[in-house]
């Protein structure tokens, strides 16, 4: 963490900034996963984080939400330093992380209840919200099934319910649409749009450009642990489509043939 900087410096920006990342850096051994990454997510924005595999999206979001200790840099959630005052900051964040398990020996209903209670909510509030969320996400029928028996898409949805139960001001969703069926994905998209309209902020990581272009109003292109471009979707894509712009920024597109031994005819 950056030296003497005490981190609670309240600049006027914080009123409108839902998430501010300053110089986040993470190394795994010799490999630099994220390098001095800075990003500003305005309050009320629907922010897309796109990048190729291994670009550092998950690492960045983990550091932003207090799941992974950064080697350097800071993360502010509505002006609160995540790594100085983690308990306060985490109250404001709903987090769906990729690549971690859930307590899958609980039923879906129990799991969402568990998350609500961990945030210190009252039993009645939790019960009410759990019922709403299960209905919203089409999981009522599976409420009493152990999460371990859920399909991949259902697991994503229940994890999303867990992230939403405490009515966070900022939603951080890592690959929320992976293996979710189109109908549920559309439902989730509607819900997120409504959430943003109601004053919430969403940041999603994805590598489906089309989805990001349709859904998000802001986007940041990340590659090799750095932000290559960021701003509103229109600013970033300019005249071309987001996908073309992305390929242009990231590079690496090639038309080489596969190795000969992979061709069977």
């Amino acid at each position: 963490m950056g030296g003497n900087e005490k981190g609670i410096s309240m600049t006027s920006d914080h009123a409108v900034t839902a998430l501010e990342l300053r110089g986040l850096t993470k190394r795994f051994g010799d490999k630099v996963a994220v390098e001095a990454l800075s990003l500003t997510v305005p309050t009320g924005s629907f922010y897309g984080l796109v990048g190729p595999n291994g670009a550092g999206k998950t690492t960045t979001l983990s550091m932003a939400t207090g799941l992974l200790q950064p080697d350097a840099g800071q993360s502010f959630v509505h002006g609160i330093d995540m790594w100085q005052r983690p308990l306060e900051a985490k109250q404001l964040v709903g987090n769906l992380s990729d690549g971690v398990k859930l307590f899958d020996r609980l039923t879906g209903e129990q799991l969402v209840t568990y998350n609500g209670l961990l945030f210190g909510m009252s039993r009645d509030t939790v019960a009410e919200r759990v019922a709403d969320l299960l209905k919203l996400l089409d999981l009522e029928g599976a409420a009493g099934t152990l999460v371990v028996d859920y399909s991949a898409g259902m697991t994503k949805k229940i994890a999303l319910a867990c992230a939403l139960v405490h009515a966070p001001k900022l939603l951080v969703l890592d690959e929320p649409f992976e293996s979710v069926d189109p109908v549920s994905a559309a439902n989730i998209r509607d819900m997120l749009t409504e959430y943003v309209a109601g004053g919430g902020t969403v940041i999603v990581s994805s590598h489906v450009m089309d989805l990001v272009q349709r859904m998000c109003d802001h986007v940041a292109v990340v590659s090799a642990g750095r932000v290559l471009a960021s701003g509103t979707v229109d600013e970033v894509r300019g005249e071309s489509s987001l996908e073309d712009r992305f390929v242009e920024l990231v590079g690496g597109r090639h038309h080489a043939e596969g190795p000969a031994w992979l061709r069977h005819s």
Binding site: T65, G66, K101
Partner: peptide, 14 residues
Amino acid sequence: DGTAFATHVADGVR
């Protein structure tokens, strides 16, 4: 707990 422990970390459990 395995990586499910992430729930406790993300939810800011003391």
